[in-house]
Design a binder for these strands. Structure first.
Length: 281
DNA sequence: CAAATCCCCTGCAGGC
DNA sequence: TGCCTGCAGGGGATTT
């Protein structure tokens, strides 16, 4: 799956889509060679170190936590990939695709998995199991895809940020970004600028359910979250059908017809937040 | 503890 | 035509 050059912005559904494509390509293969075309993305190892540790290793599994992708190299060694804005994968290509940064060459088909990253904001870390656990514990709350109302309430209990800003803090809940936080709040009928700790029990139940359903639907659509309608390149229809508020300023709410508004709020001061002033309270 | 700011990076749109 | 600015955005580090 490619990333933003095709209009995708990796949040949880995009990461899940990548993992589902990577799993049948990588699991059970041995990484023969790693071709590192851009050392910039290796943040905690040199190309030599990375190759020495990973080459010859069997891939035991491919996992996702929040927006992060994990390769289990077996024997307690992991590659953590944060695609950030424009990271993505291409499978089985013989020649380097545009913006190729790294290639895992495999012992059997599809023989190659490429990591591509147009803007080079992505991060790749080589981690022992205990370091990975520490990182997840420090930086990641529970995964948004399976969040339940009780967990959500606990995570937000002492948080006074606007609920949308809180939902985007990965250490509270992992996986939501700008787009799906907005969409979930619209489905739940909650204004994005409400302080998180003022949500009532019934609102938290609606919100937890909305987060799960928005993410599940986006995964079913293979993570169709377009950032930029100007470069949507033909998939524009699907994108517009899925999104209720994101990037829809002035357009009618699909539920009540009121014009979608945009605003700025504390914690997200230089970004717009879209919402329906009638449906969301 | 929360918020703001800056930074990483590239492509593209809009203004002049 | 070409240069400049702003914007998109995840997320870490640093400052207020």
């Amino acid at each position: 799956m490619q990333a933003a050059e095709e209009g995708y912005v990796p949040e949880l559904p995009e990461a899940e889509t990548m993992v589902r494509e990577l799993r049948p390509a990588l699991v059970g293969r041995t990484i023969r060679t790693v071709r590192i075309l851009d050392a910039f993305l290796l943040k905690n190892s040199s190309p030599r170190q990375y190759r020495r540790r990973v080459e010859g290793r069997y891939v035991h599994g491919v996992h996702r936590h929040g927006k992060w992708i994990l390769l289990d190299h077996d024997g307690g060694l992991w590659t953590l990939i944060q695609p950030r804005m424009t990271g993505g994968f291409r499978i089985g290509l013989r020649h380097r695709p545009p913006h190729a940064r790294l290639c895992w060459e495999l012992d059997r088909p599809p023989h190659s998995v490429w990591y591509t990253d147009l803007r080079r904001l992505g991060v790749l870390l080589l981690l022992e199991a205990d370091a990975l656990q520490r990182l997840l514990a420090e930086r990641h709350g529970p995964d948004a895809l399976t969040i339940d109302a009780r967990t959500l309430r606990r995570r937000l209990a002492r948080c006074r940020s606007p609920i949308k800003a809180a939902l985007m803090k990965q250490e509270l809940i992992a996986g939501l970004g700008n787009i799906y936080a907005e969409e979930a709040l619209h489905v739940a009928g909650i204004r994005p600028d409400r302080p998180a700790d003022t949500l009532q029990p019934d609102e938290l139940r609606r919100l937890a359910r909305a987060i799960r359903s928005v993410l599940r639907r986006a995964i079913a659509a293979q993570g169709t979250s377009f950032r930029d309608y100007r470069t949507a390149r033909g998939s524009e229809g699907e994108f517009q059908r899925l999104l209720n508020v994101y990037h829809r300023t002035g357009q009618p709410c699909r539920r009540c017809g009121a014009a979608i508004q945009r605003m700025k709020m504390s914690g997200l001061i230089n970004r717009y937040t879209h919402f329906c002033p009638r449906c969301q309270r």
